[in-house]
Simulated scan of single mutants.
Amino acid sequence: MQATKKQPAAARLIEMAGPLFADRPFDAVSTRELARAASVNLSAISYHFGSKEGLYDAVFSTLIDDLAPVRNGFKNFLDAGLAAAKDNPALQRQILKTFVCLLIDAITSNLQPRWKMRLILREIQSVGPCFEKVMSGHIDIMHDLAGRLVSVIKKEPEDSVTVKLVSHSLISLCLQYSLNEHLLSHRLGWAGFKEPEIAILKRETVDMVFRMLGLPPMTAQEDP
């Protein structure tokens, strides 16, 4: 990836810093490397962000803002149909199937570069300085949205341990497809995730999630 000099220096720094921080620990990325990647003077980091730590924080703020359409899309989808599904098992199954398929679409889409998920995962696993920011700004919201759906199906409160653990498992199951694309492609003999492979991921994952929630297997009519 190369930054374009038509962008403001601050935007170039954020754009180029994200992938670097995603692939290496914070301390392993030097300010000189960041400045060189963004084609800016070294002093631009302190001028625009105060420090490398400030740039790191700005990367996460931008990342969370970029993922807002994903969060809003899932919220709007659940707002539109979940109330009617409370006592309608067939509609619950349809909403759950669509939720999983939309999640896999979002995770495997080239519109959201994979480094963003790697960076989020690195920050969560290391409990880094932006852990709370990314949890409250994105992760908690996505897990709570999944929890709304799981709560209706399981008939348990959204804040119950069961609902939170099942929601975590559902999202993690889908998320790992992006993080482990090369591993899975190798295991399955695929040349990456293209439309036919994504269709298989959807079908198998929906079936796994149905079983996780104690629902009958998908019928032929329900096949994604």
Rank of each mutant, 00 (worst) to 15 (best):
R71C: 14
S46Q: 15
A11V: 08
R118E: 15
W190Q: 07
G81D: 04
L42T: 03
H138P: 02
M142Q: 14
L119K: 08
H168W: 03
A37S: 11
I120T: 12
L55K: 11
T4S: 13
S151W: 04
P129V: 08
F77M: 12
D144P: 02
A38Y: 08
L34Y: 01
H48L: 13
R203E: 12
D87Q: 03
E195W: 04
T205A: 05
L67F: 10
S109F: 05
L179K: 02
L183Y: 11
L103K: 04
E222S: 02
A22K: 00
F131S: 13
V100T: 02
H168F: 03
S169E: 07
F131N: 13
N76A: 12
G128K: 13
C174N: 01
Q112M: 02
L184K: 10
E123F: 04
G54P: 10
V209E: 04
I124G: 09
S178C: 09
R32M: 04
L201P: 07
A106V: 01
A10F: 15
L63M: 00
A220M: 15
I124V: 12
N88E: 07
H168I: 00
S109C: 00
F210G: 01
P224V: 11
T162M: 07
P89M: 09
D140R: 15
G81V: 00
G18A: 02
R122I: 01
S178A: 07
L175H: 09
R32L: 01
S43C: 05
F131C: 07
A17W: 01
W115N: 06
K52T: 00
L102E: 15
M142K: 15
V134M: 12
A84D: 13
K133P: 11
L165W: 09
R71S: 15
A146E: 10
K164M: 04
Y47S: 14
G81S: 09
P196V: 00
I124R: 14
L111D: 14
A146V: 00
T98P: 10
N76T: 06
L82W: 02
L175Q: 11
L34K: 06
F21Y: 14
I124E: 14
G137P: 12
L213H: 01
V59G: 08
A38H: 11
W190R: 06
G192I: 05
Q125W: 07
L201E: 05
V152C: 06
V166C: 08
Y47A: 10
A9M: 03
F21E: 11
N180I: 08
S51A: 10
E123I: 00
A220W: 13
G18W: 04
S167I: 00
L42V: 10
L103V: 04
H186I: 07
F193G: 08
K194W: 14
S39I: 04
L78E: 01
S46M: 12
V163M: 03
S151F: 03
P196N: 08
I141H: 11
F193E: 11
R122H: 03
